[in-house]
Computed example of a mutant assay.
Amino acid sequence: MEIRKVETDKKRYLDLLLLADEQEDMVDRYLERGTMYVLEDDGIKAECVVTDEGGGLLELKNIAVTPDDQGRGYGKALVDFLVQTYKRQYAILQVGTGDSPSTIPFYESCGFRRHHLVRNFFTDHYDHAIYECGVQLVDMVYLQREL
């Protein structure tokens, strides 16, 4: 398993990016200003994008694992990599996600705790309803962990 930084042509991973953030213009808001990593293990298995939000805050804007490889520890490996890579540069790692029974437990298992939420984020910023595990996403839940 190898995790490497993607310096150019980040959009070549658009299909994977859209698994985590299904509207391309929303991905465009952070992709170029973010730092992207891909995890390879006999092929690309996962990706993530982080951004510097100032004040010691690093935000995980996108993390996705290929559908056939979910549940194999690749997402956790990326989070662990981010913690180790950025612990001397930032104080907090933050992630915003929908209030979904599949994502919240994953982040909590990686050491994140609920911090705050932005009401109606998904209904206000996306041009269509987004569903995850049969639940419509409405509010953005922010979780944080110390680095």
Rank of each mutant, 00 (worst) to 15 (best):
D25N: 14
D21V: 12
F122P: 05
D25T: 12
P105W: 00
P67K: 11
I63C: 07
H128Q: 14
A20M: 03
A77M: 12
L16S: 03
T35E: 15
F81Y: 15
E24Y: 04
C110Y: 05
L60H: 03
I63V: 14
F81D: 01
D52P: 06
V49R: 01
P105K: 10
E47K: 02
F112S: 08
I104H: 08
D52W: 00
C110E: 09
A77T: 14
E32M: 08
G98C: 08
Q89F: 02
L19R: 06
D28W: 05
S109E: 12
L147R: 03
R29F: 00
D80H: 09
I104N: 10
V6C: 01
V95Q: 10
D69T: 05
I130S: 07
D25M: 04
L17R: 02
Y74R: 07
D52I: 08
R72E: 15
E59C: 13
G55K: 04
V83K: 11
K76M: 13
Y13V: 02
Y37A: 02
D127E: 12
L117M: 15
L137V: 12
V49S: 02
L58Q: 04
I92E: 10
D69M: 13
R72W: 01
G71V: 10
V6H: 04
F112P: 02
M140L: 14
K61D: 09
A77S: 11
G75A: 08
G98V: 07
T66P: 00
V118Q: 13
M140C: 13
P101R: 13
Q84Y: 05
V49H: 05
L137N: 05
K76Q: 15
L117Y: 12
L18A: 07
I104C: 13
Y37I: 09
Q94G: 09
K76E: 14
Y86V: 10
Y107C: 09
T85N: 09
L60A: 01
V138W: 00
V79M: 09
R12L: 10
M26I: 15
L16Q: 09
F81M: 04
D28Q: 15
L78N: 00
D52N: 15
L93S: 06
S109C: 12
R113I: 13
R72L: 15
R113M: 11
V138C: 05
L93N: 08
L58E: 00
C110D: 12
C110P: 07
N120A: 14
I63P: 08
G96L: 02
V118E: 15
G75W: 00
D42T: 00
V27M: 03
K76H: 11
N62R: 03
V95R: 02
Q144L: 06
G96W: 09
I44T: 10
V83L: 06
V49W: 02
Y107Q: 12
T8W: 03
